[in-house]
Computed example of a mutant assay.
Amino acid sequence: MADENSKNESSWGGARPGAGRPVGKQNAATMERAAIKQAFEERVAANADRLFNYQMTLAQGVTYLFRIHTDSKGNKSKPELVDSQAEITSYLNGEYDGEQDDYYFITTERPDNKAIDSMLDRAFGKAPQKLEHSGPDGEPIAFVDMAKNVDGD
């Protein structure tokens, strides 16, 4: 029987009606990746305003105000980050009536250039980048659009 099938060309393979994945149906792995991507995009979109604010903070740089307190025995505390907006405003305005044993200092983080570039790219579009290519003789390389030349045009 096997010998008989090998002589029959119709049993050698090829397309068969109803075989294979239906046209337009995606693989399960592709559908899973698409679902994950959609969930990620929805999560980013839901937090876009906050993310833009964080990125703007990175682009501008960050400034911190610290306080060191000296007790009555002369012992100095470790630097404490000041997180009270009222205390920060009073200090910056020169109005803070903190204890005379308090010492303040400001430290900063430099702006992040990648964050600046990203913000500008989003606002104004990415700057064009020109690439020049030349052949071994220094002449420009001629490129052929293969899509146009498929039919021999």
Rank of each mutant, 00 (worst) to 15 (best):
E4N: 09
S6D: 14
S6F: 11
S6I: 15
N8F: 08
E9M: 11
E9K: 10
S10N: 13
S11W: 02
G13L: 13
G13C: 13
G13S: 12
G13W: 11
A15W: 14
R16K: 15
P17D: 07
G18P: 08
G18Y: 14
G18E: 14
G20W: 12
G20D: 14
R21S: 01
P22I: 01
V23T: 14
K25T: 00
A29C: 10
M31S: 13
M31Q: 14
A34N: 11
A34R: 13
A35Y: 11
I36N: 11
F40Q: 07
E41W: 06
R43N: 14
V44N: 04
V44K: 06
A45F: 02
A45D: 12
A46E: 04
N47V: 04
N47C: 09
N47F: 06
A48I: 01
D49Y: 02
N53D: 14
M56D: 12
T57Y: 09
L58Y: 04
A59H: 12
Q60H: 12
Q60V: 04
G61M: 07
G61P: 08
V62Y: 08
T63Y: 09
Y64K: 12
L65S: 09
L65C: 08
L65Q: 10
F66L: 09
H69R: 10
D71K: 03
K73S: 07
G74V: 10
N75V: 07
N75F: 06
S77H: 06
V82N: 06
V82P: 03
S84V: 06
Q85L: 08
Q85H: 08
Q85E: 14
A86F: 05
S90K: 07
E95I: 02
E95H: 02
Y96W: 09
D97S: 06
E99G: 04
E99T: 04
D102G: 00
Y103R: 10
Y103H: 06
Y103E: 10
Y104H: 09
I106D: 00
T108A: 10
E109F: 03
P111Y: 02
P111L: 03
D112R: 03
N113L: 07
D117N: 08
S118N: 09
S118L: 10
M119E: 07
L120G: 00
R122M: 11
A123K: 04
G125Y: 05
K126P: 00
A127V: 08
A127G: 02
Q129I: 10
L131H: 04
L131F: 08
E132P: 00
E132Y: 03
H133R: 07
H133K: 05
S134H: 13
G135L: 05
G135M: 05
